[in-house]
């Protein structure tokens, strides 16, 4: 009986692990780079209104952000997506490119987590990463719009590197290996 209870407890812990991993900042591994970005939409999206279009029973689906980014020179270039949140630093794990070059394709907001009600921001830049760096800050991106059609007013990139360093040092101590990405126009083939 005790054995069954133990197995049951272990199983419950195992099920809870992915949820725990998501809320904490992921720890970098040797073959990975962890990209950091923040996305803001101003004025705030009326998510309550868009929930009317979502199909759910009890828990309303969250509004999530996604990033499309992939290593350019690796044989297998799987884009990372990683669901994140608006207005906070999001950490996404990506396999390390052998020349430290990544295609930063776009940023997406899935309002009420639906494809139909999504906002897509094309970036189309190459992100170059300094050799050996584990945490790479891409930037804080702010999209401003003027009306109900999300008519763009501006799409800016701000530098909040100091805040990222602060957050990472609070989690992993002062020796954390973090740098800014260099965003450049991709080279023509």
């Amino acid at each position: 009986m005790k054995k069954i209870v133990c197995i049951g407890l272990l199983f419950a812990l195992f099920c809870a692990m992915p949820a725990m991993a998501q809320s904490a900042i992921p720890k970098a591994k040797t073959n990975d780079v962890i990209f950091v970005y923040k996305l803001q939409v101003l004025p705030a999206i009326p998510t309550e209104f868009y929930l009317n279009y979502a199909d759910y029973r009890k828990t309303p689906p969250p509004t999530v952000t996604q990033i499309n980014l992939w290593p350019i020179n690796n044989f297998i270039a799987v884009p990372v997506v990683g669901d994140g949140k608006l207005n906070t630093f999001n950490y996404v794990r990506c396999s390390r490119d052998k020349k430290n070059e990544y295609q930063f394709h776009n940023l997406v907001v899935r309002v009420a987590n639906m494809s139909a009600t999504s906002l897509k921001f094309d970036v189309g830049l190459q992100a170059n990463v300094p050799e050996g760096v584990q945490y790479v800050y891409l930037g804080t991106f702010i999209f401003r719009y003027s009306d109900e059609f999300f008519t763009p007013e501006s799409f800016e990139r701000l530098d909040e590197f100091d805040l990222v360093v602060e957050e990472l040092q609070a989690a992993f101590g002062p020796d954390v290996n973090v740098a800014r990405a260099k965003l450049i126009e991709p080279e023509e083939d």
Binding site: V111, S115, A116, T117, S118, L119, K120, F121, Y145, D147, F149, F150, T151, P152
Partner: peptide, 24 residues
């Protein structure tokens, strides 16, 4: 009103188009 979705069938393939909400 915004057109946010349509689809297209060609032979056995159906393509789903999500147009996104940015801009009128």
């Amino acid at each position: 009103w915004q057109l946010l979705y349509f689809q297209m069938t060609s032979g056995n393939t159906i393509t789903y188009f999500y147009l996104g909400m940015v801009g009128k």
